[in-house]
């Protein structure tokens, strides 16, 4: 990936994504945290576009920024008597250590592995191929996913139902 514009866009979006994700740790208000999470999701979608995955990027915005975050807002608004701050618990230090280890480990692996890089350019179009892939080699997981969605929907309804 050599195009200067795309490289600049990638790093800018990466900075935005990680910055927004880091704000998730820092902000006090849960509602602000959700908004930063949405910003982070949108940033990830932008990263997908720079990696020439336009269908996934749009799906990311549609589902993560448009639906899952709204679900989270619903969850927060439906639990008004609970505390709405975003404080940490006693696991903060171990979590920090663990996170640092994850970054170190993955960076080490990423840099030390010899990847079989294809060196091809960006994809022209992905939607049609994804559709075909979903319906020919991945048709069983596709159907299972729909079953999973139905099961999740029924489960969610059962859990929150008034007894």
């Amino acid at each position: 990936m050599d195009d200067l514009g795309v490289v600049i866009a990638f790093w800018a979006l990466a900075a935005m994504t990680i910055g927004a994700a880091a704000m998730l740790i820092l902000v006090r208000n849960l509602m602000h945290a959700i908004l930063f999470l949405i910003l982070s999701f949108v940033g990830v979608a932008g990263l997908y576009i720079t990696l020439s995955a336009d269908f996934v990027a749009v799906a990311q915005v549609l589902i993560y920024a448009g639906a899952i975050s709204v679900l989270m807002i619903f969850a927060v608004m439906l639990t008004p008597l609970s505390e709405r701050d975003n404080s940490g618990n006693f696991l903060q230090l171990p979590a920090l250590v663990l996170s640092g280890l994850v970054i170190a480990g993955v960076t080490f692996v990423a840099l030390e592995t010899e990847w079989r890089e294809a060196g091809r350019g960006s994809f022209d179009t992905t939607a049609a191929e994804i559709g075909e892939a979903l319906l020919s080699p991945f048709v069983l997981p596709f159907e299972i996913a729909s079953v999973l969605l139905v099961a999740a929907m029924i489960g969610a309804i059962v859990i929150v139902r008034d007894d």
Binding site: L78, L81, D162
Partner: peptide, 8 residues
């Protein structure tokens, strides 16, 4: 059991 919400 209904969800306990604050009356508005």
């Amino acid at each position: 059991m209904a969800i306990k919400t604050e009356p508005l």
